[in-house]
Each structure stands twice: as structure tokens, then as C-alpha cells.
Lab assay of single mutants.
Amino acid sequence: MGFKLLSKLLVYLTASIMAIASPLAFSVDSSGEYPTVSEIPVGEVRLYQIADGVWSHIATQSFDGAVYPSNGLIVRDGDELLLIDTAWGAKNTAALLAEIEKQIGLPVTRAVSTHFHDDRVGGVDVLRAAGVATYASPSTRRLAEVEGNEIPTHSLEGLSSSGDAVRFGPVELFYPGAAHSTDNLIVYVPSASVLYGGCAIYELSRTSAGNVADADLAEWPTSIERIQQHYPEAQFVIPGHGLPGGLDLLKHTTNVVKAHTNRSVVE
């Protein structure tokens, strides 16, 4: 069995187990497998329904001669939608809004960016022009300005110390501490036991640490421990890039980060 097929099978099995364990909360999309990078042309966006009122959005972007996937989250909030992270750029984010209108038909009224990198804030200006209120932590807003990236308009308070959590509509926002970046936030959907790890969490097929220019490698494993301790009931975990899975993604990420750190020390 090929690795790609095995990865998709694991996603399907995880979703099936969740649907059985929580039949009222989960209505997993039966329309197909989780979209992969090879299936999404740059400039297009796919939506994948995880649970009743919960979707991931998947886009792709060219970077350094390669094409990478990027995940975000959409959560229903009454007759409105909360968006977590842009679709990595203005063109993708405009396509995301169009796809949401086509498939869901509810307005996106608020959006949260989970850290300051372009795959999370690139497209904020498109959201703002569409009347979406954009939010991020003060740290993310400051770092985005320093980096020359787009800056969300509103500040999220109460997320300055490791372990801080605040309720934001249908989700809980959690600051686990520094990891992929010093400002990275985690998003949890309690009604569906869905954990969105953003770039602080890796997919299972990833074996290298990737972009760690703004990471705190020493603190990252401790931050992941905080996530595990705060959300032990999480059933569906979405990484910032690639295929979702279960809580095993947290341990896998820790292993990859520690291996990278150990290699760096040896070198």
C-alpha cells in the first residue's frame, strides 16, 4: 500500500471513529477524501466538511520552486461564519470567499490569524475590503508590521502568557507558548472536538522541520505538551499544512522538532 493511500485511509478511519463516538456532533463529509496538494491548482481553494458547521479550507501556493498546501478553518456561528487564517495570499483568499459563498452561503463576518507569517495573514486586506472584521493577538499584529505583512485590524486580548485561553464565538483560542513562531495560536472547536494546530503542528508525513527561522526550538516541545494537557479530548487535529489526523500529530511534531534540534547540535 502506497504512503499517500495509507495517509488518506488514516484520515478516513479517524473521521469514521469520530462519527461513531459522537453521532450528534459529527456529520463528516462523505463526498470524498481530504484534498491534497496535487489536486488543488494554485489560485483555487477546496472546502472539506469535518463536522456539522465545521470545515477546513485548503489552498496551495508556490514557494521556492515548489507547491505547498495550506489549511485553515471555518466555523459556523449562528447565521454567520468565523474564518481562521487566510488562504495564503490575496488571490487565494478572494477564491476562498467565493467558494464559501458557493458552498455554504453564509457571510464571513470575523477572521482570526493564528500567527504573523504570510500563509496566515496574506489576504487580510481582501477580507477587510469584503467587510470582514480581522483579528490577531497584539504580538501577531506587531510582528506582521515588522515583517511588512498585512496586519489584522483588531487585537485579541488575554493571550499574552503561555497557557492563556479565551473564548471567541464558537471557538476557544489558546496560546501554548512559542513553537513554530513566538505568537502562534491554537484554535479548538469544543462542539466538535476539532483542534486546529496551525503551523505549530505537523502532518504525519512530514519528517523535516522546514521553516524554523522564527521558531523557538527549545520551547516548542513544552508548548505541545500544554496543548495535549489542555485538549486531551480532541479527536480531529488539523495541521497548518497537509493531512489531518488525531492527537498523534502532536507527538510526531515533537519528535521531528527534537530530531532537528539534535542534528543542529551535532553539526
Results as ranks from 00 to 15, higher is better:
residue 216 D to F: 06
residue 146 V to I: 13
residue 193 S to I: 04
residue 6 L to P: 10
residue 237 V to D: 01
residue 100 I to F: 03
residue 202 Y to K: 08
residue 142 R to Y: 14
residue 61 Q to G: 13
residue 136 A to V: 03
residue 10 L to H: 07
residue 215 A to G: 12
residue 208 S to A: 12
residue 138 P to G: 14
residue 54 V to C: 06
residue 6 L to V: 10
residue 191 S to M: 07
residue 245 G to R: 03
residue 242 G to T: 03
residue 261 T to A: 06
residue 134 T to Q: 01
residue 147 E to K: 14
residue 232 P to I: 06
residue 259 A to T: 09
residue 259 A to L: 07
residue 206 R to C: 11
residue 199 C to Y: 03
residue 34 Y to L: 09
residue 104 I to T: 05
residue 147 E to G: 11
residue 181 S to W: 02
residue 9 L to V: 09
residue 80 E to F: 15
residue 134 T to C: 11
residue 8 K to I: 15
residue 60 T to M: 09
residue 157 E to Y: 09
residue 98 A to V: 07
residue 81 L to G: 02
residue 161 S to A: 11
residue 78 G to I: 10
residue 126 V to I: 11
residue 142 R to N: 12
residue 68 Y to L: 09
residue 134 T to S: 13
residue 82 L to I: 11
residue 168 F to T: 02
residue 13 L to A: 08
residue 118 D to E: 10
residue 24 L to A: 08
residue 186 I to S: 05
residue 143 L to E: 07
residue 252 H to G: 03
residue 113 S to P: 04
residue 130 A to K: 15
residue 145 E to A: 15
residue 122 G to N: 15
residue 263 R to D: 10
residue 204 L to Y: 11
residue 221 P to Q: 07
residue 79 D to S: 13
residue 231 Y to F: 15
residue 172 E to C: 03
residue 258 K to C: 14
residue 217 L to T: 10
residue 31 S to R: 11
residue 199 C to S: 01
residue 201 I to T: 08
residue 166 V to R: 09
residue 118 D to W: 07
residue 234 A to W: 02
residue 161 S to P: 04
residue 95 A to S: 11
residue 101 E to W: 15
residue 113 S to H: 15
residue 42 V to F: 15
residue 259 A to E: 09
residue 198 G to Q: 04
residue 62 S to D: 11
residue 251 K to G: 08
residue 48 Y to K: 12
residue 106 L to S: 10
residue 110 R to G: 12
residue 208 S to H: 15
residue 123 G to K: 03
residue 143 L to G: 05
residue 143 L to C: 04
residue 146 V to Y: 15
residue 203 E to M: 02
residue 44 E to C: 13
residue 4 K to T: 10
residue 179 A to E: 03
residue 163 G to K: 12
residue 132 V to E: 02
residue 37 V to F: 08
residue 73 L to H: 03
residue 225 E to D: 13
residue 177 G to S: 04
residue 58 I to H: 14
residue 139 S to H: 13
residue 207 T to S: 08
residue 91 K to V: 14
residue 256 V to Q: 06
residue 193 S to D: 12
residue 267 E to V: 11
residue 82 L to H: 04
residue 246 G to Q: 06
residue 140 T to P: 02
residue 244 P to Y: 10
residue 137 S to K: 13
residue 173 L to A: 04
residue 23 P to C: 06
residue 242 G to F: 03
residue 225 E to K: 07
residue 186 I to G: 02
residue 83 L to W: 01
residue 62 S to A: 14
residue 5 L to F: 05
residue 182 T to R: 08
residue 175 Y to G: 00
residue 113 S to R: 04
residue 38 S to P: 10
residue 152 P to S: 10
residue 23 P to Y: 08
residue 266 V to C: 04
residue 213 A to Q: 09
residue 149 N to F: 12
residue 30 S to V: 09
residue 11 V to H: 12
residue 182 T to I: 11
residue 78 G to T: 14
residue 141 R to K: 14
residue 164 D to N: 15
residue 231 Y to C: 04
residue 209 A to L: 12
residue 222 T to G: 12
residue 205 S to Y: 14
residue 120 R to L: 01
residue 71 N to Y: 02
residue 244 P to M: 10
residue 106 L to D: 13
residue 147 E to R: 14
residue 251 K to W: 08
residue 22 S to K: 13
residue 45 V to M: 06
residue 105 G to W: 06
residue 62 S to V: 13
